[in-house]
Design a protein around this nucleic acid. Structure first.
Length: 786
DNA sequence: TACTACGGTATTTTT
DNA sequence: TACCGTAGTA
């Protein structure tokens, strides 16, 4: 019933308005239903539209029924969005698609059905990373491992990495197995054993268990291959090895798989994503049809060209040429600042200007503006600044609702009420609020539980009965144990509504009281969150349903209506778009991040570059890149070089802005002068910058790199470079031992010379790296150039 | 058992 | 610099 000709006849016969809205490439992607398809969808090219149209097409032509389509995404948000749009296009006529969801949500469903094949009970609990680390801490403590040298976090990271690559403990290759003091695999195995005992899985296991079930049970796999006749995968460039294997298993029969992605937007390599998956698609699925979506509907011509220019430096791309038939718009704006605070101040002003509608542009609402940073610590400068000028902002990211301490505590209580044997939950809250049960008491409970082969909850009961725990704690523990029994009874009996029950639990446990009694400033907020949690319960039929939901849905869309500027990381911005985008902190070491280059070399640099590409392509109409010459890094002032990505911006699409103010406005300090970029040279030619510019030695990229490295390590400054410094700054050549004065740091002594930077031990401010230009010989303070 | 002081460390984080 | 986590102490 699903032969190709038939389904296509059906299309021809029926009016299909959703297809008319597509451009030729999108349409091809939506209509090629049989066989493997790779949809290479550049930023802003209508990927979701094509994808949802494809689903609609499958349904509308009768090619597939809703339950025959497996559609996987990475985020709940993406899944929601897709569901919504399918429903809307179809006119809500179709019942929901049961297999449209995140990889994890789909796996949970599968695993619940076949839990016994993975040695689990179908009511297994799903641990989040917090539980995971807690568990590992226990394992490490039991093995007498020094937590200082070998932290549980590290182990968790290593094991996660292995799971991302679909390695069971036995499959970890020997050289990898040496990780974690040569005991990584040992702890991995122990951890898995512990999870089995707890009837629990972590996120990685959701995939791995299902893969194992498929591999070991041909009949099960065959059943799902028959079942899922059409497979769609969103953000394919972000899949890890485990997800890839999972997909290959399921698509293995019919090969009706359509993967959508953009290799240029692969920014989660550090989390196990394998760009190789998308790059290899055509080999993996022979005869695959590759469709490129290249018409961009989001950004203006200049923005698109700037982004394309940057990403062009990456090797091994599948290659796309984004184009638009829209207007060129404003050029991407580039500006350097004296330091990070100055940058924040300037951006704050820009936001206000744009809001008022200066610059000959229509006013932009605050909602349409975003500041995208590389690392979350950069947010602080903006928050500080916006707070002082009273500019409303919203920070995306940070601790999510369900990750908050009080929410997790409350959830642990709920978990105990539904399943009293949940040891991790029990452990979490035995002494929260304080019940006088310390380490020793908990150990006694654990020992009792273990020797009797029961849960901690039962162990606690036995310990109380056997008077193994004495004093104040004993009474409190008895109360807790009995309370858990009672709550559980209520859950089973369904005596009260779950919302009332939840309130009762939080009340009787003393948890609410604990925060009410707390007079620290954050207590009211926490109570507020608890209220919100209870409110969220109303959307579910019972506690179990809620807990199940929460285990996989850790997102937190707080809908507030007030107009605000958005501040978030580049990673968090993927998939979003804003009319106005600010990209601050484009400085070598910060962006691209030194760490990612150190850890992953060229691969890391290329991922950073993709991040730059993602950043620029978020902008619809106005994109402003900025950098600061000086930045405080961990309390130390450091002079910064403009990002190498700035050199890669195509000149024709960039407008270099001159910072306001003569001297104080800053001119990008060291980096500006050292840059080989024509863009920055153009800038350097303007009045103030002239003084900062250097002879050609400084203008070679090689020197720039050298300089940025030597800056950290105290490499001696070459003789000729010093000569140049003297020429340009007649009054200020330095040698070690000189007494100098700096506007910000006061008096100090020159300890070393590094390129155009000096290492100075200031009398008050400590040792700093500062640019020679901003320092004068002591006693010449009157000549300070600012 | 609970508080304080110190030291080590410091990206990005869909589930 | 600022936080978190651990260890030491009351």
């Amino acid at each position: 019933m699903s032969s190709t000709p038939l389904s296509q006849r059906a299309v021809a016969a029926r009016p299909a308005p959703y297809l008319d809205e597509l451009n030729p490439a999108q349409r091809e992607a939506a209509e090629t239903l049989e066989g493997p398809v790779l949809m290479l969808a550049g930023a802003g090219t209508g990927k979701t539209k094509a994808l949802t149209s494809r689903i609609v097409h499958l349904l509308a032509t009768g090619t597939a029924k809703p339950n025959e389509i497996l559609a996987v995404t990475f985020t709940n948000k993406a899944a929601r969005e897709m569901k919504l749009r399918v429903g809307r296009t179809l006119g809500e006529a179709v019942e929901g698609m049961p297999w449209l969801g995140t990889f994890h949500a789909v796996c949970v469903k599968l695993l619940r059905r076949h839990a016994e094949l993975a040695d689990l009970k179908s009511n297994f609990t799903i641990l989040d990373s917090d539980d995971q680390i807690r568990l590992m801490k226990q394992l490490l403590a039991a093995a007498n491992v020094d937590e200082k040298r070998w932290p549980a976090r590290m182990l968790a990271g290593i094991i996660d990495g292995w799971k991302n690559r679909a390695w069971t403990p036995e499959q970890v290759p020997p050289d990898e197995a040496k990780a974690f003091d040569r005991r990584g695999v040992e702890f991995y195995a122990a951890y898995q054993a512990r999870l089995r005992d707890l009837n629990a899985v972590d996120f990685g296991d959701l995939l791995l268990h299902v893969i194992r079930i498929f591999r070991e049970n041909e009949d099960v796999l065959a059943q799902y291959r028959r079942w899922f006749r059409y497979i769609l995968v969103d953000e394919y460039q972000d899949t890890n090895v485990a997800q890839y294997l999972w997909l290959r298993l399921l698509a293995g029969g019919h090969r009706n798989i359509c993967c959508v992605g953009d290799d240029d937007q692969s920014i989660y390599g550090w989390r196990g994503a394998e760009v190789g998956n998308i790059l290899r698609f055509e080999q993996d699925f022979e005869g695959a049809k590759v469709v490129r979506l290249e018409q961009n509907y989001r950004s203006t011509g200049h923005i698109l060209a700037a982004a394309s220019g940057v990403i062009a430096s990456n090797k091994g791309r599948l290659g796309k040429t984004l184009w638009t038939d829209g207007e060129d718009g404003e050029k991407v704006r580039l500006i350097g600042h004296w330091d990070g605070e100055e940058e924040a101040r300037w951006i704050g002003e820009q936001v206000e200007d744009l809001q008022r509608g200066t610059r000959g542009l229509d006013p932009f609402g605050l909602d349409s503006m975003a500041i995208l940073v590389r690392a979350s610590h950069q947010m602080r400068a903006f928050e500080d600044r916006f707070l002082t000028i009273g500019l409303p902002y919203r920070v995306i990211g940070g601790p999510r609702f369900y990750e908050r301490l009080e929410i997790r505590d409350a959830m642990a209580y709920f978990r105990l009420a539904t399943s009293p044997d949940d040891d991790l939950a029990f452990e979490r809250i035995v002494n929260t609020p304080k019940r006088g049960l310390g380490d020793k008491a908990v150990q006694t409970i654990q020992k009792t539980a273990r020797s009797n082969g029961v849960s901690l909850h039962e162990g606690a009961r036995l310990a109380v009965q056997g008077q193994l725990i004495r004093g104040k704690g004993a009474g409190e523990l008895r109360v807790l144990v009995e309370a858990i029994d009672r709550w559980h009874g209520q859950v089973v009996a369904e005596a009260d509504t779950h919302v009332e029950l939840a309130e009762m639990i939080l009340d009787e446990s003393g948890y609410t009281g604990m925060w009410q009694a707390d007079k620290t400033p954050e207590a009211p907020g926490r109570l507020e969150n608890l209220k919100e949690l209870v409110k969220a319960l109303e959307n579910f039929d019972n506690l179990q349903g809620f807990l199940e939901h929460v285990a996989l849905i850790m997102d937190n869309e707080s809908e507030d209506s007030e107009e605000k500027v958005t501040i978030m990381t580049l990673h968090a911005a993927k998939g979003l778009e804003f009319p106005v985008v600010f990209l601050p902190g484009w400085e070598d070491g910060l962006f691209p991040s030194q760490r990612s280059m150190d850890e992953s070399g060229l691969k890391g640099l290329e991922e950073e570059r993709r991040l730059a590409y993602v950043g620029i392509t978020r902008a619809e109409r106005l994109c402003t890149i900025s950098f600061a010459g000086n930045r405080r890094v961990y309390g130390q002032w450091q002079s910064q070089l403009p990002s190498r990505f700035i050199d890669e911006l195509p000149e024709a699409h960039v407008e270099v802005l001159t910072p306001p103010g003569l001297y104080g406005g800053g001119y990008g300090a060291a980096g500006m002068s050292a840059s080989a970029s024509p863009i920055l040279q153009g800038l350097a030619a303007s009045s103030v910058q002239e003084r900062a510019s250097r002879a050609d030695v400084y203008n070679s990229p090689g020197w720039k790199r050298l300089q940025s490295r030597s800056g950290q390590r105290g490499m001696a400054q070459p003789q000729e470079a010093r000569g140049i410094t003297i020429d340009l700054e007649a009054s200020s050549s330095f040698s070690t031992g000189d007494r100098v004065f700096h506007q910000k740091f006061g008096y100090g002594e020159v300890m070393a010379l590094e390129g155009d930077k000096l290492v100075i031990e200031f009398d008050k401010a400590g040792t700093k790296n500062v640019v020679a230009r901003f320092v004068v010989q002591a006693g010449q303070a009157d000549d300070v150039p600012f």
